[in-house]
Structures are given as structure tokens and as C-alpha cells.
Amino acid sequence: MTTWLDGLLILMVLTGFLLLGSSRLAESIRMVAMQGLALGFLPILLHSDEIGIRLILLSLGSMALKGLLFPRLLLRAAREARIKREIEPFVGFTMSLLTGIAIIWISFWLSSRLPLTESIRSTLIVPGALFMTLTGFFLIVSRKIAISQVLGYLVMENGVFVFGVAMAKDQPWLIELGVLLDVFVAVFVMGITIFHINREFDHIDSDRLANLKDSDS
């Protein structure tokens, strides 16, 4: 079972890597979709001894939202805004990948320092979750196009989700479902906002939103 679990997490880390190095939005969105689908299997694999209706619901729900619905929304937003790629991010793709390598290293180091139980320590869950959270954070900071930032947000949330599933053995799944709903609303709102901003301003380069701030002069 651990092999499968680790394989899944490695897959998620790899998608994170591809996200860091890819400029095409459609490709990036598909990566996030894949990550979302992989994520759906995680609760089942982790708690295979106590599979119940709630667990299955959670899995299916997150798969449907993160693997299918969000990507569709984002693809639509990208299509309507007529943007295909992130052209000039704040941090270049080569540099982003190097940062990704550094993040991997940091996550492993951190996870070896955190006080964890042996059963969790033996898997890749903690470093994987840390990697995804940090990568998502880095994507939000380093990208200009709003859709890429939304993707970063999703990756970060995925990381948190992995953490939550691993840690909260007995916590009510309701919280997870609530979080899912929050994310859904967030992505939905962002999708609509992106669409409208684009219609008003002809671009969704968030960098230029800075022009809207009050200037001193």
C-alpha cells in the first residue's frame, strides 16, 4: 500500500515540477487537474481500513471538483480571455525549476525535523504536502497572469489537503468538505472576475492592477 501511496505523491510532486516549468496555460491547468484526480485517491489509500460512505463521498467530491470542474472553469476563463501562455513571469522558468529543486530539498529537511508519528514519517506524505504548499505559494508570488495565480492557489490548497487527510485521522470530514466548498467558491469567483476584468481591460496581467492604486503624486 505504501508503494501506491508514495507513487501517488511522487506523481503529485512531478506535476508540481511540470507546473513550475510550463508556460502554456492549458498544459498547466491539465497538470492541476491531474493533481486533483490523484488527490482524490489519497483518502481511500490512507484510511483503507475504514472505508465508509463519508470517505468515498469526500474522495469523489474532491475528484469531481478539483479534477473536473475547476479545470473546466479555468480553461473556459482562459479561452474567453484569449490567453494561451504565461509569457514573462516575474521569475523565469529555468529559475522557477531551480527553486523547485530547492523546495524539494527544504521540504525533505523540514519533514525530518517536524515531530511526527512514525507511521506518517515513514511515508512521503509530509514532504509531499510541504512541497505542494510551498510550490503553490511560489507560483502565486512569481506569476503574473491571474489564472496562473489561481493554479498556484489550488496547488497550495492541495498541499494543505494532503496534510489534513494525513493528520486528521478522527476529525470530522465535514471540515474538509467545508474547505472544498470554500475553494470552489474562490475559484468560481476568480473565474468570473478574471472574465470581467479581461472584458474591461483587455488583459489579465495582475501586475498592471498595481496601476489602480492611489498614487502619491
Binding site: I10, F17, L20, F93, T94, L97
Partner: peptide, 25 residues
């Protein structure tokens, strides 16, 4: 785009190395 590809591969290799170093999986 080729250097990013190779750096991505380096990331995979390093990830593998870190996995081995952990003695796991």
C-alpha cells in the same frame, strides 16, 4: 525551453536521490 527541461530532469533525479537517502520507499 531546453535548459528548463534538463533542470526538470535534474529535479527528478534529485528527488529520487532524496528518496533513497531517506531509506524509503
Amino acid at each position: 525551453r531546453i535548459p528548463p527541461l534538463l533542470i526538470g530532469a535534474a529535479g527528478c533525479a534529485l528527488f529520487a536521490l532524496l528518496l533513497v537517502l531517506r531509506g524509503h520507499p
